[in-house]
Design a protein around this nucleic acid. Structure first.
Lengths: 167, 167
DNA sequence: GAACTGATCGGGGGGATTATTT
DNA sequence: CCAAATAATCCCCCCGATCAGT
């Protein structure tokens, strides 16, 4: 543990953000900061049991996520989080996912463009991947669910994400 | 000053966000947290010289602001910050601002709707105000500049905002 | 014919451009 | 009549429901 000094006003603000009794400063700050640091650090450390899904919990609660009202934005944010949670698993899941003609995810825009007539590929920022965007909400949800399932994420967690994803 | 304990990983992350040599933890955290606490606390405390414009500095640097690419989003964010910086001054500035027919700002949607044919009023969240949105970029900038000027904000600060506002 | 997949096309927002007023 | 300022039409592009195809 490390110790840092902050001014009184800021301290009061942070203390006021406690979500449950006894929550420590690290936990509060990670939530408030949208757990941004996890994206870059997660890969070079063994996943820690209790924090297994913290990346999602944090994304789903973050302003970055809830501020986005459109399905497409949340869709891309979620895929980005999934990739950063475990790039290797994500890659496997991404590769095996596709429709009858269209490819849903790829590392380059073109493969997606050429796999259909109007796929409208979108870049998943913070990720080497691109996704198709010309789909209805049901299919977007299906893509998310399929990826999560293939990545071995729990049924329960998938349900939570589904709830947060919809309007 | 208060002392808090945080884990090593989080400490490294925060330390890595230093913008200038010797910047203290409070300063870094306020920036990362988008200075959210200022909005609620600012009104019941005398403005502090050095921090006079910190609300803007922070907004302009915040992800909340820079993530928004559309002019209209930045426009509304900026107006919200101006209101929260000093509601009284903002009200005065808002009331005296209008075109030859249209009213630009009001506390209710209707006044704006009836003052023109297609004003497309938008709510300024975190504020009792609404703004007209059916204008080109030049006029939006004009509105911002006019309000800031009427609120007595320095020429220099206005220029900074202008720069951050455009593409 | 039922279920799944693709992609057209309508709706809506943003804001440059054009019309109108001063 | 021209220039500047202001209003608001209207085009473009994004989103995603709906419909067409498999």
């Amino acid at each position: 543990m490390k110790t840092i000094e902050i001014d009184e006003e800021l301290y009061q603000f942070i203390a006021g953000q406690t979500k449950h009794i006894g929550e420590d400063a690290s936990s509060i700050l990670r939530r408030l900061l949208n757990f941004k640091q996890a994206v870059s650090n997660k890969t070079n450390q063994a996943p820690h049991k209790e924090h297994h899904y913290s990346l999602f919990d944090d994304l789903l609660q973050s302003d970055t996520f809830t501020n986005e009202k459109s399905i497409i934005s949340r869709f891309i944010l979620l895929l980005g989080a999934l990739y950063n949670y475990n790039p290797a698993l994500f890659s496997i899941a991404a590769t095996s996912l596709h429709g009858s003609k269209r490819q849903y995810l790829a590392k380059d825009k073109q493969s997606l463009e050429t796999s259909g007539k109007n796929t409208k590929p979108r870049e998943i920022i913070g990720t080497p991947y691109w996704v198709i965007s010309n789909t209805n909400t049901a299919r977007k949800l299906l893509i998310i669910e399929s990826i999560m399932s293939d990545m071995g994420i729990s049924e329960n967690m998938i349900n939570q994400v589904t709830l947060a994803f919809l309007p």
